[in-house]
């Protein structure tokens, strides 16, 4: 990056301009244009038909102060991130470590854990309904309970996160499994010879060598948490305790409601949260490069 400027021939320059130009134009048109448009629209009350009227920050005030689903959605997004990051991901790692030890039938376990990953989250949502439905769900039928798992807004987010985690665990497991297979067995042997216990060997030797995999898994987990949408939408359109920011954006903008200004304000909030993670991640990466 910090090299001195070279001399480019006219042809090189033309190529550079053409090459970069196309990318920059596409990038601006497809990413930054719509992003800026959302930011601008979030300060209006546009409904898609009417004249655009400026409201300034009013949408943000209404969001925070007078739109009850907003804070539920923020809370749920944080819960989702916490659940995937602190429970589902470590559990996926745990499964990967166990499977890496070549248990009997490990292929069977591996397939069973990986199976949900091939399902889309919307399908997981339908399966969740078959399990959790109060009237005909498997869970109530087997346990004899009469809990309204999906309708009770104080518990439904948890059971839905379990369903989402079911899929996430398999995803994380397969990535870690690949990473573990690539760890040089000599490292573990050396640790064992040096008298490290199995736990020490894992946390001090194996886990640090998995660093590149960890970064990938972290990024996947954050992305999964922020883009969660289809599972709650399939279950109850993301209402009544299952609100997520992505759902509120859709609910307000798409559809007949057409509260484009208001929905854009929610989208901007989601953007800011996403940017927080992206910036942290990129600074980490660039720091290492140096």
């Amino acid at each position: 990056m910090s090299q001195k400027a070279r001399r480019y021939s006219a042809r090189d320059r033309a190529l550079l301009i053409a090459g970069l130009g196309v990318v920059i134009t596409l990038n601006a048109a497809l990413i930054w244009g719509p992003t800026l448009a959302s930011v601008v629209l979030s300060a209006t009350d546009w409904n898609g038909i009417s004249e655009i009227r400026w409201l300034g920050g009013e949408n943000y005030h209404d969001l925070a102060a007078e739109y009850p689903p907003f804070w539920t959605a923020v809370r749920n997004n944080v819960l989702w991130l916490g659940f995937l990051g602190l429970l589902a991901t470590p559990f996926g790692l745990f499964c990967a470590v166990l499977l890496d030890r070549r248990l009997a039938l490990s292929r069977v376990y591996q397939s069973a854990l990986y199976l949900p990953v091939v399902l889309s989250l919307a399908v997981v949502g339908f399966i969740a309904q078959l399990v959790y439905s109060a009237d005909y769900g498997v869970l109530n039928a087997v346990t004899g309970m009469r809990t309204d798992w999906l309708g009770d807004s104080s518990i439904n987010i948890w059971v839905v996160m379990v369903a989402a985690g079911w899929r996430h665990v398999g995803y994380v497991m397969i990535i870690y499994l690949a990473g573990l297979k690539a760890v040089d067995p000599a490292l573990k042997e050396a640790a064992a010879i040096d008298g490290a216990t199995e736990t020490q060997a894992f946390f001090r030797v194996v886990f640090p060598t998995l660093r590149p995999v960890n970064v990938i898994v972290l990024v996947i987990t954050v992305i999964e948490a922020l883009r969660a949408f289809d599972i709650v939408y399939a279950i109850n359109k993301g209402r009544n305790g299952l609100e997520l920011l992505s759902v509120l954006v859709t609910e307000n903008i798409v559809g007949e409601a057409s509260r484009i200004g208001f929905g854009s304000a929610i989208a901007v909030v989601l953007l800011v949260i996403a940017l927080g993670f992206i910036v942290t991640y990129l600074t980490q990466i660039f720091r290492e490069d140096r």
Binding site: R239, N240, G255
Partner: peptide, 28 residues
């Protein structure tokens, strides 16, 4: 339509979940 889908649906569901909180609900 925006009032029906983004305000009333969540409001009715909240009422059904917690029927005793009518005053706060109606203020919202």
């Amino acid at each position: 339509p925006d009032f029906a889908s983004t305000v009333m649906i969540p409001a009715f569901q909240r009422f059904i979940g917690k029927p005793d909180d009518i005053d706060a609900l109606l203020r919202d």
